[in-house]
Design a protein around this nucleic acid. Sequence first.
DNA 1: TTTTTTGCAAAACCTTTGCAGTTGG
DNA 2: CCAACTGCAAAGGTTTTGCAAAAAA
Lengths: 151, 151
Amino acid sequence: MTASHLTPALPVSDMDSALAALRSRGLRISAARRLVLESLLAADSPVTAEQIADGLGGRLPRSDLASVYRNLDTLEEIGLVRHVHLGHGPGRYALASAGEREYLVCDRCGVLRAVEPRELDGVRAQLRAAFGFEARFEHFPIVGLCANCRD
Amino acid sequence: MTASHLTPALPVSDMDSALAALRSRGLRISAARRLVLESLLAADSPVTAEQIADGLGGRLPRSDLASVYRNLDTLEEIGLVRHVHLGHGPGRYALASAGEREYLVCDRCGVLRAVEPRELDGVRAQLRAAFGFEARFEHFPIVGLCANCRD
DNA sequence: TTTTTTGCAAAACCTTTGCAGTTGG
DNA sequence: CCAACTGCAAAGGTTTTGCAAAAAA
């Protein structure tokens, strides 16, 4: 059920507009669904399904992991949510932001840097020119060594 | 046991030099080990551990999957083998080639393109200048749409 | 009431590990 | 002979699925 057929992003930054988006597609507003949204609104960087299920370490009620995955999937299908794969380890989810985000992740220390897509347009242009390849770093980030770890 | 502390690559292109590399470190030459090497020598693109265990679809004897993983790990530790993660799905293994390889993978059709690192030096330079980030696309490739799928 | 969603348990997928037995050197 | 290696079985980490019960509309 992995939402790979990415629907256009539908950025929201408050609970009410998120709920409106759900209602407008006939999706229901359940406690579990609301909790996933609360977690994502509270998080300041992409979080794992497990962190959400654990109530962000006690700050919110816990919920069932399978339901969290299902809800993240649903929310991603309607464009409210996006997820990134940071090397090994579980995927990380965030609310879709206006203008999406692309990522750079450090292989050594794991630090994640989100950038605006236009900051990578030069890179994209080079890759398009050299290989006819249209790169996207929103779902699978650029991996390497950050300024700190580079020594 | 994942060999993340990448030893310098030790490129070989025939069984004899691979075996010599093993011997020179006091590693043993078992039937299972030899089979992994045969598979990698026979493959023209990176293969999964399961493909190796299955004897590349009948072309070679089958072997035990856990041992295949262990042997790939050992071979990677001494620099004879490298592996890439292509989006979702299992990792893919190949003999280390002279001058390593970096990869571009198409999100839509899955086609894998291996390039010489210097072909990506421009990209790397841009990322270093803009973000102080040293990108490496050898273990986690650049993901996007290939020329065909880009329409 | 009807259809969606939940919670739990189980399975699927990829990879690692423990261990007793085998084998290469 | 003995350390290295194997094969098997079991477990670990992440994600999906089946299904009966619960809840939203």
